[in-house]
Amino acid sequence: MTGNKTQATAAAARGEPVRQRVLDAAERLLRRGKADFSMRDLASEAGVSFATPFNQFGSKAAIMHALSGRRIDTMAKRFAAMSPPPDATGRVLLAIDTAVQVMLEEPEINRAVMGWIGTAGPSPGKVLAHSTSLWSLALGAGEGLTGAGREKALRCLPEQLAFAFRGVLSFWTASELRDDELASRAREMAKTLLLGFAERPLFCDSAP
Rank of each mutant, 00 (worst) to 15 (best):
Q101L: 05
A162F: 01
E106L: 05
T6F: 08
R14T: 11
R155A: 10
L23N: 07
L182W: 02
A81R: 09
E105C: 06
E188L: 05
R166V: 07
M39Q: 12
A99C: 06
M82K: 13
S83R: 14
E105Q: 10
K34G: 07
R111E: 02
L177A: 00
C156R: 13
R78H: 11
I96R: 01
S133Q: 15
G167T: 03
G140C: 00
A76D: 11
R155T: 14
A61M: 03
R187Q: 11
Q101W: 07
D73C: 05
E199K: 14
G33H: 06
G149W: 01
G69F: 02
Q20N: 09
L42C: 03
D24T: 11
L94I: 07
D73T: 12
A190Y: 04
E176N: 10
M189V: 08
S49L: 02
W172E: 01
T98D: 05
R28V: 15
I63F: 02
M103W: 06
V92R: 02
R19K: 14
L139G: 00
R150G: 05
R32P: 01
V168S: 02
S184Y: 05
S175Y: 09
V127Q: 14
L128T: 12
S123K: 13
A88Y: 05
A10Q: 13
S175A: 11
R40W: 10
S131R: 10
S83N: 11
N55D: 15
W172D: 00
L42V: 06
Q160W: 12
R200Y: 15
D179A: 06
A112E: 07
R14Q: 11
T2H: 15
L93N: 01
F163A: 04
A46E: 01
P84T: 09
L93K: 01
R71F: 04
A95E: 06
N4S: 15
E106V: 04
G147A: 13
A62N: 07
A66S: 12
T192F: 10
V113R: 00
F165A: 07
G58E: 08
S44H: 14
N4Y: 13
P84L: 01
P84K: 06
F50W: 13
A12P: 00
T89Q: 07
Q20G: 02
W172P: 01
D97C: 00
M82I: 11
G144S: 03
A13H: 11
S83Y: 09
I96M: 04
F165L: 05
K77Y: 09
M189E: 03
L157M: 00
A129V: 12
Q7Y: 13
L182D: 03
